[in-house]
Design a protein around this nucleic acid. Structure first.
Lengths: 337, 337
DNA sequence: ATGAAAGCGCTAACAC
DNA sequence: GTGTTAGCGCTTTCAT
């Protein structure tokens, strides 16, 4: 293995000078720099990251904890974060939390191993009661739906507003009996609860009576559960002419479930989802959705984290907060009147 | 920050003894072990991974380089590998190669930074000509389609055989004019070429004449390109009653493209894909596919890598090779006769 | 069964 | 602009 000492010897300088060259410090005579760079190429020297880390305390890698990478939404989010991190010369190590509170807490404590310079945590299971657990001594950014009062930076999307716009869109398209396939509401600030609120608000604004029979809670936000809920609804005999799904993944399942039950979309029933995942543009019918600008959210989250990393040692700053913008993407599943 | 020294002091032993306890060495009196463990809990001590790495040369993290995490297939593959690696107490850091030869070479040289104990590389762009570049001095396992004669372990799926079975399935279902939406063939051992061979073999076996008009090459294996190719085919006037798609992602696009052109699946045309991604079970119609047992491939790849990591220092062993099994999953898109 | 010494490769802090 | 010194936290080696 080639060390910085070997390079120093080959270039006829000290290890320190080599270090300066490697780290782009300004005070190196360009002739010396050339000689060092030449020696580096010659010997095929690579920095030993472990040694550098031990010295500097930084690893150049950030952690990203998501429920599951194989769910399209998180896959797309991960890709966006990897891209954003790469722009800042950071690697991303991905962990899966399994969409559980325990998994999310594990991710928090694992990172204490100093494997990462910081952690982006996509929360689904943690609640406001866990705020104290987030008071860790390394940079953390919470990404996703939940809004904490706590001391941690977070990046979210306007859930209530988005759901309101989605619901209003169905109403505008002529729907009056609008169902909601939603996750289990665990508190007041999880995705499922927030989107539920937006749904209620839009109904109220339009003077459409709320009907509990039209709310279908599902345990997991998967295609499988979405499909099952849609079939349950279609077979229940309850009348409905629109469906809001808490995520696109659930909506894709719902499209399938409605097809199974012989319900035509959009002729009989209109459907809209959340997240605007790529797959939604290719379903038959294609899926209308609320698009929360993934790239912006990912870029902001990485930016927040980098700022925190730079603040190391300084007093705790005020928690940063960013609520993304969103747009309505109308496709075939809500077409026509 | 709590160090091993602090723990040693608190427990009234030396740092060495603490190290022994942490690493489960046998020669520690159980009473001493208890005292040390207590101190560790008390002080909330965590090993400094960087320091350990510097000493041992191992990082506990393996790299996984895939074309793009946001393509469902790779997302699902990544999830399987993370799961398999977790069973062996390894973390996974994900890199994206962008499905290019350059990206794949970058992944290979980056890992030399000793960030990872080994690398699982999902190749798409590298060719047999690059074999020499794979002779790196750290453990590498190639995952995916390409088969090298080279010195590196690899895990692949039976592409020719799989494509043959897929094609034979369509023939059995009554198709005689079977189209192939395929990637660009870059040599003789890439997915696109191998699956093309299987397609040809099945046609020959059934005595169905090959028609070049029925082969649609696409530049990228995305839904977008799949949809465009399907539309091109449907609008060309060329007769066809079946479509093989080189991947499920392409097939989902093709289903969409056929719908755009008013072609009914499976009544007018039957469609089958490759990979059996989760989404395929929820399209309308649901998608038939060739399933290559992702979990088995992922587990084997991690297993190979771990073996290589253990061999460190020993003479180069013979390259290991594993060709996964596969099964045909028949769904609505190839239903009926 | 436990410990003392040495050093992994690098860079912060300070000379000169 | 370049070099010297010291030490990050841990484990390998070898004593005891």
């Amino acid at each position: 293995m080639v060390t910085i000492q070997d390079v120093a010897k080959a270039a006829g300088v000290s290890a320190m000078t080599v270090s300066h060259v490697i780290n782009d410090h300004p005070h190196v005579k360009s002739e010396t720099r050339e000689r060092v760079l030449h020696a580096i190429t010659e010997l095929d020297y690579r920095v030993n990251v472990a040694a550098r880390n031990l010295r500097t305390g930084r690893t150049g890698t950030i952690g990203l904890a998501v429920p599951e990478v194989d769910r399209p939404y998180y896959g797309q989010l991960a890709a966006a974060i990897i891209t954003a991190a790469a722009k800042r010369n950071l690697k991303v190590a991905i962990e899966q939390t399994g969409a559980s509170r325990e998994g999310e807490l594990d991710a928090l404590s694992l990172s204490r191993n100093r494997l990462y310079d910081g952690l982006i945590l996509s929360t689904v299971g943690l609640g406001p009661a866990d705020t104290d657990l987030l008071k860790v001594d390394y940079p953390v950014v919470i990404l996703g739906e939940r809004i904490f009062d706590g001391p941690v930076d977070h990046v979210a999307m306007p859930n209530v507003e988005g759901a309101r716009v989605a619901t209003a869109h169905l109403i505008e398209r002529g729907c009056r009996r609008i169902a909601l396939i939603d996750g289990l509401q665990k508190g007041e600030v999880d995705v499922s609860s927030l989107r539920y609120s937006g749904y209620r608000e839009a109904l109220d604004e339009a003077g459409i009576p709320f009907d509990l029979q039209l709310v279908l809670p599902i345990e997991l936000l998967t295609m499988e559960h979405g499909a099952a809920a849609a079939r349950r609804l279609a077979d229940s005999g309850v009348e409905f002419d629109g469906v809001i799904c808490v995520t696109d993944t659930v909506a894709i399942g719902a499209l399938r479930g409605l097809a199974d039950s012989g319900v035509r979309v959009p002729q009989d029933v209109k459907v809209i989802g959340f997240d605007n995942i790529t797959e939604g543009a290719y379903t038959v019918p294609s899926l209308s959705s609320i698009d929360p600008d993934h790239a912006l959210m990912a870029g902001t989250a990485v930016g927040f984290l980098v700022k925190r990393m730079a603040e190391k040692g300084k007093k705790k700053q005020v928690a940063r907060e960013f609520i993304s913008r969103f747009s309505l993407v109308a496709r075939e599943s809500t077409l026509g009147r």
